[in-house]
Amino acid sequence: MDTQNATHTQNDWITTPVTARLLRGALDVEQTERGVLPHRLPARARAQCADPQLAMAESQPSGVRLVFRSRATAVELDAVPTKRHYVGAPPRPDGVYELFADGRAAGRATAEGGNTLTVDMTAGTAELAQGAPGTLRFDGLPGGDKDVEIWLPHNETTELLALRTDAPVEPASDPGRRVWLHHGSSISHGSDVAAPSGTWPALAASLGGVELINLGLSGSALLDPFTARAMRDTEADLLSVKIGINIVNADLMRLRAFAPAVHGFLDTVREGHPTAPLLVVSSILCPVHEDTPGPAAPDFSDIAEGRIRFRATGDPAERAAGKLTLNVIRDELARIVAERAPKDPNLYYLDGRTLYGEADAAELPLPDGLHPDAATHRRMGERFAELAFGGDGAFAK
């Protein structure tokens, strides 16, 4: 459990520097004036795109864990979270830190203070105000040597300043599990999930017994070459790419550009992972974009109640001119994988509607028209684990 009651004096604590050796799931660790900032894209990739949406998404540590081995029964972490506030909307809940001891849930906490990013979606502006660090504490952990994992908030940029424990800390040994590298959109990032271990990739990784590197980048699964290069250069045993929704709702490209972009992305990934299982996943069902092109536009009519919905603003007739819809993209992805498969027997395709389809939408509709809720993430994670890791799945051993 986590508590705000101090059970140790200052002299009891052992301070351990937070370094890349203690972090998993991050592709880069930036040294700041106060501490370290985990990134999910390397510096080279970040330098090639000035999009503030991407900068925010890749610095939010979805799937990133602070991992160490210790006999500690109490842990403190100083952090500077960046909390988002949307003009006209109620305050967002604070990001959640989850602690696991030898794989078992042992506490949750939030960090007070931190920076505030004020976003005005109607004006398209964002302003950052610097804030003070916050301290979170976990007490009452099991005694004895154990592996401790602290999952960082999937939806808050988090600068780590200091780790304190009541017993010495050492890096955890290599768990010997296969590494799964996944890239996708805000759905993979974890939109509308309350805690970082509840994203569908985190759930699927747990069920599949693998180590997750989550490159789910909110609004930014756009077939960017720098993301493909980041995947190429990252050690992994299993790879997946979820393609579709951001291409459509950003109205990013037409059919003529889409297929070559997919081929180029896959070619780049294959340069670093020529024989690893590579799974191409299309979008889950999203009724507003199944046959209607983008761009998507937010509906602010209920923002005061904390609700934003999204709608498609394209015209279905524009498909004749090459505008993309989710159904068009699914057909193209299936065709591309089938075309490449004879020379790439470890390339697979999964229709995203097997994770969330029409029957699921009737039972668990997307609350804002685009993003699944926590219950749907769990269903998607369980289904992905069954389809990919089980039986004859792409990731079955």
Rank of each mutant, 00 (worst) to 15 (best):
T313D: 05
V288M: 15
V281H: 05
A338W: 05
T325G: 01
A320F: 03
I284E: 13
A361N: 12
N327Y: 06
I284Q: 10
V328W: 00
H263I: 15
V337E: 03
L278P: 01
H289A: 15
P298I: 02
P295V: 14
P274G: 06
P293W: 06
L350A: 01
A334C: 12
E339K: 08
V281L: 13
S301H: 03
T354A: 05
V328A: 08
A276L: 06
P293D: 01
T292Y: 08
G306M: 02
A338I: 04
I329K: 08
A341T: 11
R309A: 12
E305W: 02
A359W: 02
I303W: 01
E290D: 14
D315V: 07
A304N: 06
A334N: 02
P274V: 00
A338F: 08
G322A: 05
V280E: 13
F265N: 12
E332D: 06
N246F: 06
A321S: 10
C286R: 09
I247P: 12
P316S: 06
A320G: 14
G306W: 00
L355E: 04
F265V: 03
G272T: 09
I247W: 01
R256F: 07
T313P: 04
V248C: 03
A259Y: 04
A361C: 12
L279I: 11
P342L: 10
L333K: 03
S282K: 02
R330D: 00
E271A: 11
R270Y: 00
L255S: 14
P293H: 11
N327V: 04
L285C: 07
V288G: 15
I336K: 05
H263C: 14
K323I: 10
R330S: 04
E271F: 04
T275N: 10
N249S: 13
S301T: 09
V281E: 06
G306N: 11
R319P: 05
A338Q: 07
R330G: 01
P274M: 00
L326Y: 01
S282H: 05
D299G: 09
A341Q: 11
D267C: 12
A257D: 15
L285W: 03
V328T: 07
L266Y: 13
H263R: 15
L255F: 07
T268C: 09
S282I: 11
T268M: 12
A257L: 12
Y356D: 03
H273A: 09
G357V: 10
D267M: 14
L333N: 02
R270E: 04
P277Q: 05
A296L: 09
R309C: 07
V269K: 03
N346A: 14
